[in-house]
């Protein structure tokens, strides 16, 4: 439905977006994930028509929106600071978009009532928005953006200003409301938990370009670059050099590792990064016959509920591993990562 083609945008004479393209399909919830300052909000503002790109286009059902002003695009945007109208009550805020559509008064009040019910704030209708807590403001802002039934809803870090407990609760609420509305959604965040918890598809933005996009599962299982793996917090990243190409062998600070799967072709002597996931670690002497086993010193062992998080020192390198049983701090352990579970990235 929405197509973003090759957007470029400068900010203070430096390129901020260097050719960003992605699509949003009908009813799809796309999470735009990137660190702060990566230009995520700017993409939303360009889609909304609040800013013009240096080049590139925004298409809706194939039609270029270049000459369509913001108010005729019919897109909803929920701002990071919510931007609720402070001179209006909650009900008036929600009614604003409906009034501009020229809807009849009875219809408006019926819709506002429904809307307030869906965010469970019926009794708040006539309160000024300045009296609301952060979470309440967030809900009113969402209700206001959804009320005129936008063709596309964009949310800019909607949970950014809220504390952690409230966030986890609101993610579930948000998911329910968004999926119910059947509206395509672009959700901007820097928080990967939020993104994984909500998204049908993830788009990862870094340094003005999209590094990777795909379902949460695809991204989790097949990160394409070391940056994506690190940003998503998938595990230990270890630098190394290719010493043998068949079987692929990489020399790291704590020894040579055999690697079976890799998305890239490597040449001899090439620098690379290896992803060793904590959950793939095999711990114990029973695995010492396998390849890739290292002897480590246990620096710390933390109880995390379903597993124990071990902080291991292998030579000079710090690695994390998951274990079903606790380890004694200061003791020595044999750990191995199976060759078929290690991913390698150039660079």
């Amino acid at each position: 439905m929405l197509e973003v083609q090759n957007l470029t945008k400068d900010y203070e004479n430096k390129p901020l977006l260097k050719g960003v393209s992605f699509e949003v399909a009908k009813g799809e919830l796309v999470c735009l994930l990137g660190s702060s300052g990566s230009g995520k909000s700017t993409i939303l503002r360009i889609i909304a028509g609040l800013e013009e790109p240096e080049s590139g286009a925004v298409l809706w059902e194939g039609q270029d929106l270049r000459d369509v002003p913001t108010h005729k695009r019919g897109f909803g945007l929920m701002f990071q600071d919510y931007a609720l109208f402070p001179h209006k009550t909650i009900a008036q805020n929600i009614a604003f978009g409906l009034q501009l559509q020229g809807m009849k008064e009875e219809e408006i009040s019926r819709r506002v009532k429904d809307s307030l019910e869906s965010i469970r704030m019926q009794s708040f209708a006539d309160r000024p928005v300045t009296e609301l807590s952060g979470g309440e403001q967030q809900r009113v802002a969402l209700a206001r953006a959804l009320a005129p039934s936008p063709k596309l809803l964009m949310l800019d870090e909607p949970l950014g200003a809220l504390d952690h407990t409230l966030r986890t609760q609101l993610i579930l609420e948000l998911r329910a409301i968004l999926h119910q509305s059947q509206i395509p959604v672009i959700y901007v965040t820097h928080d990967r938990e939020e993104a994984f918890g909500l998204a049908d598809r993830l788009v990862i933005l870094h340094d003005g370009v999209i590094l990777q996009q795909g379902t949460p599962q695809e991204l989790f299982e097949q990160p394409q670059t070391a940056w994506v793996a690190e940003f998503l917090g998938l595990g230990n990243l270890v630098p190394g050099v290719v010493t043998q190409s068949k079987p692929l062998t990489i020399k790291t600070a704590f020894g040579e590792l055999k690697v079976d799967i890799q998305p890239h072709q490597f040449t001899l002597g090439q620098k690379c990064q290896l992803l060793l996931r904590p959950e793939d670690a095999l711990i114990g002497t029973q695995y010492s016959a396998r390849e890739n086993h290292v002897e480590c010193l246990v620096r710390d062992s933390l109880f995390m509920g379903e597993y124990h998080q071990l902080e291991l020192l292998c030579g000079e390198t710090m690695l994390f591993a998951r274990s079903q049983i606790p380890a004694k701090i200061g003791s020595r352990l044999e750990v191995s990562w199976p060759a078929e579970k290690i991913r390698g990235f150039p660079g």
């Binding site: 503002r45 909304a48 028509g49 609040l50 002003p69 913001t70 108010h71 695009r73 019919g74 897109f75 909803g76 945007l77 701002f79 600071d81 931007a83 609720l84 109208f85 402070p86 001179h87 604003f96 978009g97 501009l100 559509q101 206001r144 953006a145 005129p148």
Partner: peptide, 27 residues
Amino acid sequence: LNPRLEHAARLLGATPWQAFTKVTLPL
């Protein structure tokens, strides 16, 4: 004045003039 208030109005369907008279001017 928070410029996003006017932007929010535009996104809810207000023309630039409506955004001015309904949001900016009252504030």
